[in-house]
Every structure is written in C-alpha cells, then in structure tokens.
C-alpha cells in the first residue's frame, strides 16, 4: 500500500514544483493557456485521450479504495467460513483460559482478522507491570498459540501478541526529608 502513496506523493510534489517554476519563469501567463485550447481544437484526439487517462486514474483509485476498505473491515470482521469462525471461537476461549493461568497475566483478548487467504490472529495480553514478559511470550508461543492454530486448522497462522501493562497506583512516598 506504500507504492500508490509514494506515486501519488511524487506526482503531487512534481506538479506543484512545475507550477512554482512556471510562476517564476512567466508570471503573467494565464494558468489556462489559450494555446492549450487551440491545440485541443485542432487535435481531436487530445481531450478524449485526457479523459481516458483520468478514467484510468479514477479506476486505479477506486481499486485502491476498495482494498483499503476491505482491509479495514476485515480487521473487525474476518472473512472466513462459518466452520472456521466456530473453531476460532472455541480456540479463543481455550487460549484465554490458558493465558490467564500464566503468572502476571490479568486479561486476554483474542481477535481473528483478515481472510482465509491472509488470516491474522491479534492477541492482546494485559499483564501486571513487573511481569516477566519474556516468559509469558515464550509460554504462549510454545503452548497456547500452537494449540489455537491446531484448533482452527491453520498451522501457519501469523500471530501478533500485543502486551499492555497495568500498574498499581503507587502509594505516596513517606516524606522523610526532615529526618535525613
């Protein structure tokens, strides 16, 4: 998705620079040059070709927009069949139970995203501030997530584990300044 962004940026910056240069070179020349109107009147192919080019760009933009919208929607509602959805629900329940049993884990949220061609599992693990994250991460990868992949029958399912830390509100430090 970065190539269309870069291409649009390059075209926009290029056109802007060209316009600035034209402003420097011939500031009195009108933006819609009469010579352009004359050229279009003489060459009948010019306007249809320009319209065709605009159509192509609009079509490419529509495709890009559809891909973006699909990605956005699939982040919240995965494009998978009913059987996979049921298996994913069962797997998520088990994954949540297993993860919550790990030391320091307070809460777990599991979300299957994407489509059957490009699925993703997003696991959000809320832990206490001093939790050994390396241990929790290793235990999840070696056990609970492997079983989840088995349950949904997607052995190579890419998984992203997002850790969130929660801290107890710290007790106010006793003021011992006077005693020192």
């Amino acid at each position: 998705m970065r190539i269309p962004l870069a291409a649009t940026g390059a075209v926009l910056a290029g056109c802007g620079l060209l316009a600035l240069r034209l402003g420097d070179a011939d500031p009195a020349r009108p933006v819609r040059d009469p010579a352009l109107d004359r050229f279009a009147a003489v060459h009948g192919w010019f306007l249809p070709a320009l319209a065709g080019l605009a159509e192509i760009v609009a079509f490419a933009g529509t495709l890009w927009l559809m891909v973006q919208l699909r990605t956005l929607v699939e982040r919240w509602r995965p494009d998978v069949d009913r059987a996979t959805r049921v298996r994913a629900r069962a797997g998520a329940l088990r994954l949540r139970q297993e993860a919550r049993a790990l030391a320091g884990v307070r809460d777990v949220r599991v979300r299957l995203t994407g489509s059957l061609d490009r699925p993703r599992l997003i696991v959000t693990v809320v832990c206490a501030g001093d939790t050994d994250l390396g241990e929790v991460y290793g235990a999840l990868g070696a056990g609970a997530l492997t079983r989840y992949r088995g349950t949904v029958e997607l052995p190579d399912l890419p998984v992203v584990v997002r850790f969130r830390l929660v801290f107890r509100s710290a007790a106010p430090e006793p003021d011992v300044t006077a005693a020192v």
Partner: peptide, 23 residues
C-alpha cells in the same frame, strides 16, 4: 488567473507540501 498570482503559488506550494507528506 496568471501563474504568478499569490493564490496559484500558494496552491502549488500546498501541492508540494502534500506530496512530500505522502512521500
């Protein structure tokens, strides 16, 4: 509207800026 008009130049500058942001 000539190319040297401040509004045209401001629009061109905006285009360059937007292009750089996208890049």
């Amino acid at each position: 509207l000539p190319w040297g008009d401040p509004r045209v130049r401001a629009a061109a500058g905006g285009m360059v800026l937007a292009g750089l942001v996208l890049l």
